[in-house]
Simulated scan of single mutants.
Amino acid sequence: MTLLITAANGALGRLVIDSLLARGVAPSEIVAGARTPARAADLAERGITVVPLDYDAPETVDAAFAGVDRVLLISGSEVGKREAQHRTVVEAAKRAGVDQLAYTSLAKIEGSSLPLAAEHLATERAIAESGLPATILRNDWYAENYAANLAQADATGVLLSATHGGRVSAAARADYAEAAAVALIGDSHIGKTYELAGTPVTYDEIAAALGEVLGREVVHQDVSAEELQAALTGAGLDAGTIGFLVALDAGIAAGDLDVEDPTLSELIGRDTTPLVEALRAAHAAA
């Protein structure tokens, strides 16, 4: 059985490959698709086949599918382009007749108001329409995303949000990667849609976790959307980023990332990584 991991040179893709190897998959059975294969030379040195795979270049996608049995489509990072990019991969998978297409989607996608939701939902629908044997991995939020708040929290002692008590069921990227590896090597996961989540936390709890990592008090300051927008504008962020962050907090306030589901822990056979532990590791690696 040959497994293709798209976006294999990214943070999640590399962790998926690590998890596959740890679970006994031979390097010769893994194909790493990378936009720039030269940057994945270390994977090749481990015996993994590295091939060009660019979501914007359909010919590379088709070529990457040669001899592949199962595929993990890791969602792209270019918001606004992802629906077309993902469809390119889905169509190539259908032409290749793969035995399984797994996809990293987003939590509670059908009713989500998050700005990332539309492209994920469109991709899920394209996969369903393709008729391919599929596994949908609806990842909640990455705990490491909050590492971006460490510097500001250290400087000000404040975590600002407009989440109004909303909770986020974040888990470590390695947790989601391990779940993806499990889903790829077991037939029982084909045809399943999984809501994958860690322990739900409020922004008060996230602030406390940031403080524990930094060794100082950090408090959460909940503000209105207008106040958040003004603060982000004052920090010099561009309009697109500001709009995204304000909409993200509105979605969190509405419960779009609040998932209580043990599936992730069940798949990986352990508790998900505590937020403090994930943040501490991300801080140390920065």
Results as ranks from 00 to 15, higher is better:
Thr36Arg: 12
Ala207Gly: 06
Arg39Phe: 03
Glu78Asp: 15
Arg270Ile: 00
Gly198Ile: 00
Gly24Glu: 08
Glu59Tyr: 07
Val98Gln: 04
Asp54Arg: 08
Asp62Ser: 10
Ala44Trp: 04
Gly157Ser: 10
Val218Thr: 00
Arg216Asn: 10
Ala93Gly: 04
Glu260Asp: 14
Leu101Met: 05
Leu106Phe: 12
Leu248Thr: 14
Asp175Gln: 03
Leu116Asn: 13
Ala286Pro: 01
Phe65Ile: 05
Ile5Ala: 07
Ala162Glu: 04
Leu106Trp: 09
Ala117Trp: 06
Ala153Asp: 04
Val79Thr: 11
Leu132Glu: 04
Ala284Asn: 03
Gly157Cys: 07
Ala148Ile: 10
Leu43Ser: 06
Thr202Tyr: 05
Ile30Val: 13
Ala282Trp: 01
Ala107Leu: 08
Leu232Met: 15
Ala171Cys: 09
Ala174Ser: 14
Thr241Ile: 11
Ile242Arg: 02
Gly67His: 08
Leu15Ser: 12
Val71Trp: 01
Asp99Phe: 09
Ala254Val: 10
Leu132Asn: 03
Glu217Phe: 06
Ala102Pro: 01
Gly198Pro: 00
Ala285Lys: 13
Thr163Trp: 03
Asn139Trp: 12
Glu110Asn: 10
Val223Ala: 08
Gly13Asp: 02
Glu226Arg: 08
Lys192Asp: 10
Ala11Val: 14
Tyr142Ser: 07
Gly240Asn: 15
Leu184Lys: 04
Ala179Phe: 02
Pro27His: 03
Thr163Gln: 15
Ala162Pro: 03
Ala231Lys: 10
Pro115Gln: 09
Gly80Phe: 11
Ser113Asp: 13
Ala230Asn: 10
Ala32Asn: 02
Leu3Asn: 03
Glu178Pro: 00
Glu260Trp: 10
Arg270Met: 00
Pro274Ser: 03
Pro200Ser: 09
Ala92Pro: 01
Gly243Cys: 11
Ser19Gln: 11
Ala170Phe: 00
Thr88Asp: 04
Val25Asp: 05
Lys81Gly: 11
Ala44Thr: 10
Asp154Val: 04
Ala57Lys: 15
Ser265Trp: 00
Val31Pro: 01
Gly24Trp: 06
Leu210Trp: 06
Ala117Tyr: 03
Ile190Tyr: 03
Glu119Thr: 08
Tyr194Cys: 05
Arg23Lys: 14
His120Asn: 09
Phe244Pro: 01
Val98Asn: 06
Thr36Gln: 14
Glu110Arg: 13
Leu160Phe: 09
Leu4Gln: 02
Ala143Asn: 02
